[in-house]
Amino acid sequence: MHDDEIDLVDIARVLLRRKWWIIGTFLVVTLGALAYGLQQQRVYAYTTSIELGEFGPEEFVAGAASTASTISDRILLSTKRAFLQERDLESMPFDVSVNTPEESSFVNLVSEAPLEDQSLVAEFHKRVFERLRDEHQSRLSIMENQSDAKLKNLRSALETQEKRLSMLEELSVIRNKGSGDEGNVRAEARSGEENMQAELASTDAALTMLLSQLQLSERISEREQAMNELQGEIRDEETKRSWIKPTRAEDVAVASLSPVGTSRALIAVLGAILGGMLGLFMAFMVEFVAKVRESE
């Protein structure tokens, strides 16, 4: 039972006897990791932010999510094919990812590549952006044509309402004049006690004129309300027309301030840790082999 216990002194003696194995393994692995890190090219992230076109405040030509899907599923594929054929390449020297920040009107193209490939990344991002801009410009043109037709109809309807309102106002003036003349007739009828029938006819005519005047006032009010609504719709549509913004990208393939990916320092640290662990493993393995040989 006593022989199964781990003796720390014996472990320390093993480590001292096999120290050169530990040191050698540590140095080999650490120097290998350092050499690997130094051979790795510094890779930077290049970002192109595309702002979606607008046709009126908060009314975009296309949604950010649908635009990202369009780029990933269709535009990237055809653009890559043409890019590879022009440059006689078998595969793309870098990848392109598409992301959309939450609740924003931006779509980002992101690629990781060395500094010497920045011009290639910029050219490819520019082609993708131009394809998307052309598609959105076509949609903007359609929306402009629809807006022109809508404005034309609204202005025509407003002009019709204005004419009808003018006619009703003229009719109201004529009715008022007629009402005044009828009052004179009624006064004359009252002066002649012998003409009772004329007085009754005058009273009926006055009531009829009063009802007609109330109906005219109601129609005039309805026309004015309809005109106000049409004028509001025209102002809203004109505001949209003044807010037209095409899809745009201010900067193409902007490089990150520092390299991305695993840094050389981290590779060296991980190599040192791995070298120490392998060194201890090699020390005990060599000691074990030596014990086996002695027992034989």
Rank of each mutant, 00 (worst) to 15 (best):
D4N: 11
R17Y: 09
R18Y: 07
R18K: 15
K19Q: 14
I22M: 14
G24E: 08
G24W: 03
V29T: 07
T30V: 06
A35R: 10
Q39F: 11
Q40R: 14
Q40K: 15
A45H: 07
Y46W: 06
T48A: 02
P57S: 07
E58P: 02
G63R: 07
A65K: 12
S66R: 10
S69E: 03
T70Q: 07
S72I: 00
T79R: 01
F83Y: 13
L89D: 05
M92A: 07
S97P: 04
S97I: 06
S97C: 00
S97Y: 05
N99S: 15
T100R: 03
P101S: 11
S105Q: 13
N108C: 00
V110M: 09
S111G: 05
E112W: 06
A113V: 03
P114T: 05
S119P: 06
K126R: 14
F129K: 05
D134T: 06
E135M: 06
S138V: 09
L140F: 04
D148H: 12
A149D: 13
L151C: 08
L165D: 01
S166A: 14
M167K: 14
L168F: 11
S172R: 13
S172L: 08
I174A: 14
G178M: 14
R186S: 09
E188Y: 13
A189C: 14
E199A: 14
L200V: 13
T203W: 12
T203C: 01
T208C: 00
M209G: 06
L211Q: 11
Q213G: 07
L216W: 03
E218F: 03
E222K: 08
R223C: 07
Q231D: 10
R235H: 08
D236L: 15
E238G: 04
T239L: 15
W243D: 13
V252S: 02
A255Y: 04
S258N: 15
V260Y: 08
V260L: 08
R264S: 11
L266C: 05
V269G: 06
G276W: 09
G276E: 03
L278A: 04
G279S: 12
L280P: 05
L280G: 08
F284P: 04
M285N: 14
V286W: 04
E287C: 07
V289D: 05
V292P: 00
S295E: 10
